[in-house]
Amino acid sequence: MTIKEYMTQNHKECDELLAQVESEVANKNWDKAIELNDLFKNETLKHFDMEESYLFPMFEERASTGGCGPTQVMRMEHDQARTVFPKLEESLKEKDSDRYFGLTESLMILIQQHNLKEEQMLYTMIQNLFNDENETIIEALKNYEFN
C-alpha cells in the first residue's frame, strides 16, 4: 500500500461513517446517530491532524514550500470543515433532521472537493517525494495517536 492509497482509504472510511450517521438520522435513531457522529467527528479530526501535524510539515520541508501552496489551502479547508461539527452536534441534540441534512450536504460538498484535490494532486506529490520512505510513513500513519 502506498501513502496515497492509505490516505485515500482513510477518506473513504470517514465518508462511510457519515453515511451511517445519516442513515440513523433518517430512521430517527437519535442516540445511535449521536454516537456515530462522535466517531465520524473524531476520525475526521484525526485525519486532519495526521496531515497537519505529520504529512504536511514533512512535505513542506522537503518541497521547500514554507507552509504556502497546497498545504495552506488544505489547512484552510480543514478549518472550514471544523466549524460544522458543533452545528451537527447541536442539530442532533435538537433532533432536527432537516438542519442536520442541510449541514451534511454542505459539509460533503466541501469535503468531496477537498478530498479530490488531495487525492489527485497533494498525495501524488507527497508520494513522489517520499516513495523511498513509503513503508516507514505508512507504519507511522497506522500508529498515529490523536487526542
Rank of each mutant, 00 (worst) to 15 (best):
L110N: 11
E22N: 15
E90P: 00
S106H: 09
N10E: 15
I138D: 02
L107T: 07
M125L: 10
T8P: 00
F101T: 13
L18E: 08
L92F: 07
E90I: 12
A81G: 01
T136A: 14
E135T: 10
S23F: 10
N143E: 07
K93G: 06
K12H: 12
E139C: 02
D38I: 06
L107D: 07
C68W: 09
E135L: 05
E77D: 08
M7C: 11
M76D: 03
D98V: 13
N134E: 13
E43V: 09
I126R: 00
N37S: 14
N143V: 10
I126D: 00
D31F: 10
A81R: 06
M108N: 11
Q9E: 15
F130S: 08
M125D: 15
K142N: 14
D132C: 08
E43A: 11
I138A: 04
M108K: 14
Y144L: 03
T124N: 10
N29P: 01
D31P: 08
K142V: 02
T104G: 01
P57I: 10
I3S: 05
G69M: 04
M74D: 06
F56M: 09
A26L: 09
R99Q: 15
F56S: 02
M7I: 03
F130E: 04
D96S: 12
K46G: 03
L110A: 05
C68E: 14
A81E: 03
F56A: 12
M74H: 09
K28V: 03
E145A: 13
E135Y: 00
M74A: 08
D15T: 02
D31R: 04
D79I: 13
K142C: 04
K117Q: 07
M125Q: 14
R62H: 12
E139S: 04
A19S: 07
S91H: 03
Y100F: 15
E145Q: 15
D96G: 10
N134Y: 00
Q113G: 14
F146E: 07
F40S: 13
Q20F: 05
K28E: 14
S53R: 11
S91N: 02
E60H: 13
D49C: 09
I137C: 00
N42K: 12
C14L: 04
